[in-house]
Amino acid sequence: MKKIGSKILTGPYIIWMIIFTVIPLGLIVYYAFTNSGGAFTLDNVVSIADTVNAKPLWLSFKMSFEITVICFLLSFPLAIILSKYSKNKNSIIVMAFILPMWMNFMLRTLAWRLILLNNGFLNRAFEIFGLNSVYLMNTKAAVILGTAYDYFPFMLLPIYNAVAKIDEDVISAARDLGASGVVVIRRIIFPLAMPGIISGITMVFVPSMSEFVIADMLGGGKVYMIGNAIEQAFNSGYADIHLGSGLSLSLMGLIVISMLIYKFFDKGEEGHGIW
């Protein structure tokens, strides 16, 4: 029998990925474990434990966690409501909630600057309603708000897809067996939407961890995350690509580890009873 296509077709991709993904990663590892003289050293990797770097790393982790939680809490109910509407094929409503994603990410961040600046839109609105001004610009809260807004569609979309896939009859069956709306959400929709929730959390948590430009624009240098530390190591006057590589490698390691821990807990929960 003739086979479809041939192995040769995979060639260009494989070559591309070796040159532009595998080798560059190798370079990071190489630089991370050498000093400027080219000798082996652990200093760069270990330097993540220095206070200068450990602090922003911990801050990134904490903030990413908060951002992920906010995105999840906002998008899970929205996904459920949207899935009800799309059953009648009102897909334009779903579209409407994804649409902001197509605005350039820098423009969206810029918009939050306009809103949060001390004399920006938020405080103007507060003024009109006779409320006291809030000074959010250049704070952690501003960075969290902006990042959560930017990554929100990446949480909403996979959860929505997972929820929309749930057979309506399964929900009817649960209702039929006596489950109230809350029980249906907790015992049926939530566990069945798990794959979507997992990918949503991954897609928000990972990029938040290495974010640096939002921190720059909304944090104004006052919010110094690990992404900023890495960026500084490469782009500032006293650039040190060995240190930068070491920090990048540590960041990668941390992300992989947190994902593994998260997957482990996730599996553990599936194991025993759902009650």
């Binding site: 009859d169 399964v170 009817s172 069956a173 049926i188 069945l192 798990m194 759902i274």
Partner: peptide
């Protein structure tokens, strides 16, 4: 239900 609608999880 027609297609059983069992809770697969």
């Amino acid at each position: 239900f027609q297609k059983y609608a069992l809770f697969t999880h």
